[in-house]
């Protein structure tokens, strides 16, 4: 089963310890933009409802977890499988200090968008050098 899945989809196991419940933990794909205000992360986690997303920022490590819910149809048998529903987990080490209180998170159509504004003191400042 696992080799079959690998050939058709890009599901990669997350760099996380095994789950207690019998579900795989996938590493979700991400797009990251750097903007003037900070960074924007777009993380795709199909099957994860907005209330099942957990985001933590601790010591510059941003961890995103999503619990997938894809109930199997009743009274039918599985005949073809290209992906395995699971949970998601991925962590990013942030290079700068971000303003924790200003983080905005939205979940739409299975994609989590996270806006991390730079902390005021971390924004680039120009230091004028005065001639002596």
């Amino acid at each position: 089963m696992s080799t079959e899945l690998a050939s058709t989809t890009s599901q990669t196991p997350a760099a996380a310890p095994e789950a207690v419940r019998n579900t795989p933990i996938w590493r979700p794909l991400a797009d990251i933009q750097q903007t003037r205000e900070g960074i924007v992360l777009m993380v795709e986690m199909p099957g994860v409802a907005p209330e099942d997303v957990d985001i933590t920022l601790e010591r510059r490590v941003l961890t995103i977890r999503g619990r997938g819910r894809q109930p199997e149809p009743e009274a039918l048998r599985a005949v073809h499988r290209e992906y395995e529903p699971g949970d998601y987990e991925r962590a990013f080490t942030l290079s700068e200090d971000f303003d924790e209180s200003g983080i905005e998170a939205t979940m739409k159509d299975g994609v989590l968008t996270l806006k991390l504004p730079r902390a005021a003191e971390a924004r680039p400042r120009t230091i004028r050098v005065s001639a002596a």
Binding site: M42, E44, M45, P46, G47, Q70, E72, P73, A75, L76, R77, A78, V79, H80, R81, E82, Y83, D109, G110, V111
Partner: peptide
Amino acid sequence: VNVWQNDEAAAIVAELPG
């Protein structure tokens, strides 16, 4: 996609994030 079926019905589930 994942597909389930029996003699009378089938269910097709696809992941389309975004």
